[in-house]
C-alpha cells in the first residue's frame, strides 16, 4: 500500500516528482529511499509505467521513493543554467535527495535506472556519497573476445535470428519499393559511455565505498553484451567485490520491457535485491 504526493522542487520549483510513501512511514525511515527517473525521453513514469509499478511495489515493502523528471525531460522545465549535462544531473539528483531528507529524515539512497537512466545512475552514484545502492538496467557494456566468438557463432547457427533478419530486410525492401516513409521521426538517445577503464574505476570506487550494485542486461543489448559472465570479463578489477556486486543477463527480457511478464520479472528482481542494501 502506498500514498503518493506530487512535489515540485529544485531551482524555481522547475523539477517535478512523485513521492511514493509506504503506509508504515516509521518503517520506511529506517530504510534507504529510492530514486527513479527518466528513460530516454520518456517521462518519469517509465516505459509501460515501470517506475510506477516499481514505486508502489517498493512502498508495499516499506520503501519511500521519488520518481522524477530531470530538467528538460518529462514535465520538468529545462534548466536555464549552463554547465554540462553531467553536472546538472548530479545537482538535480542532489536536490531530489535533499528534498526527501527534509520530508522524511532519510539520508541514504538507492538509485535505479534503465538505459539513459542507468547512465545517470552511474554519474550520480559515482559522485554522491549518500548513494548506498545502485541498480543499472542495460548500463554501460564493453565487448570482450568471448563476446565476439559467441556473436559469430550465434549468427551462423541461430535459425530464428536469420529468419528475423530476412524479414527485416524484406520489410526494408517493401518500404523502398512502395516509397513509404522511413519511420525515423522518433528520437533515439545516443549512448555515450566513458572509456572502459573509467567505467571500471568508477564502479570499483563505488564498491570500495560500500555501494551495493545490481547490473542487469537484457537481450536487446546483445550487440554488446551476450553472455552471463561478460560483466566480470569487462571489469576484472571488480572481481574481488563479487559479494556486493550482482550481474545478471536476461535473455527473455527486452530493453523496454514490452511484455507485462518482462516488467514483472524486472520489478521482482529489483524488489528482491534492494533487501540486500
Amino acid at each position: 500500500m502506498s500514498r503518493e504526493r506530487v512535489l515540485q522542487f529544485g531551482p524555481s520549483g522547475r523539477l517535478i516528482g512523485i513521492l511514493c510513501e509506504p503506509i508504515d512511514a516509521t518503517l520506511g525511515r529506517s530504510k534507504p529511499a529510492v530514486l527513479l527517473s527518466n528513460v530516454g525521453v520518456s517521462h518519469r513514469v517509465g516505459p509501460f509505467r515501470l517506475n510506477v509499478h516499481l514505486a508502489r511495489r517498493l512502498a508495499a515493502q516499506g520503501y519511500y521513493s521519488l520518481r522524477f523528471d530531470f530538467a528538460g525531460l518529462g514535465d520538468s522545465e529545462a534548466s536555464p543554467d549552463g554547465g554540462s549535462e553531467t553536472d546538472r544531473a548530479i545537482a538535480e539528483a542532489s536536490a531530489a535527495m535533499d528534498l526527501i531528507t527534509v520530508r522524511t529524515g532519510i539520508d541514504r539512497f538507492v538509485m535505479m535506472g534503465l538505459c539513459s537512466g542507468a547512465d545517470k545512475t552511474h554519474i550520480v552514484a559515482t559522485t554522491d556519497q549518500r548513494i548506498v545502492g545502485a541498480a543499472f538496467i542495460d548500463g554501460y557494456a564493453f565487448t570482450t573476445w568471448r563476446f565476439n566468438c559467441r556473436r559469430l557463432t550465434l549468427r551462423l547457427l541461430e535459425l530464428k535470428r536469420i529468419k528475423v533478419y530476412i524479414k527485416h530486410r524484406w520489410k526494408d525492401l517493401q518500404r523502398r519499393l512502395l516509397r513509404l516513409p522511413k519511420p525515423s521521426q522518433a528520437y533515439e538517445p545516443t549512448v555515450i559511455q566513458p572509456p572502459r577503464e573509467q567505467a571500471e574505476a568508477d564502479l570499483l570506487a563505488m564498491a570500495q565505498r560500500g555501494v551495493k550494485q545490481l547490473h542487469l542486461y537484457t537481450i536487446s543489448v546483445d550487440t554488446v553484451y551476450n553472455y552471463a559472465d561478460q560483466f566480470w570479463h569487462m571489469y576484472p578489477a571488480l572481481r574481488p567485490h563479487r559479494s556486493s556486486i550482482i550481474s545478471e543477463r536476461y535473455p527473455q527480457v527486452d530493453h523496454t520491457l514490452s511484455i507485462v511478464a518482462m516488467q514483472k520479472i524486472i520489478v521482482e528482481r529489483l524488489c528482491t535485491w534492494i533487501g540486500l542494501v
Binding site: 516505459p47 509501460f48 509505467r49 530464428k160 535470428r161 528475423v164 537481450i219 535473455p251 527473455q252 527486452d254 523496454t256 520491457l257 514490452s258 511484455i259 507485462v260 511478464a261 518482462m262 516488467q263
Partner: peptide, 19 residues
C-alpha cells in the same frame, strides 16, 4: 521477437503493447 515470448505470455491474461 528473437525470444519465444509464448513462454512468458499468460494465455489467460490479455495484453497489448505492454499493457
Amino acid at each position: 521477437s528473437r525470444y519465444p515470448l509464448e513462454r512468458l505470455l499468460d494465455p489467460q491474461a490479455a495484453e497489448a503493447l505492454g499493457y
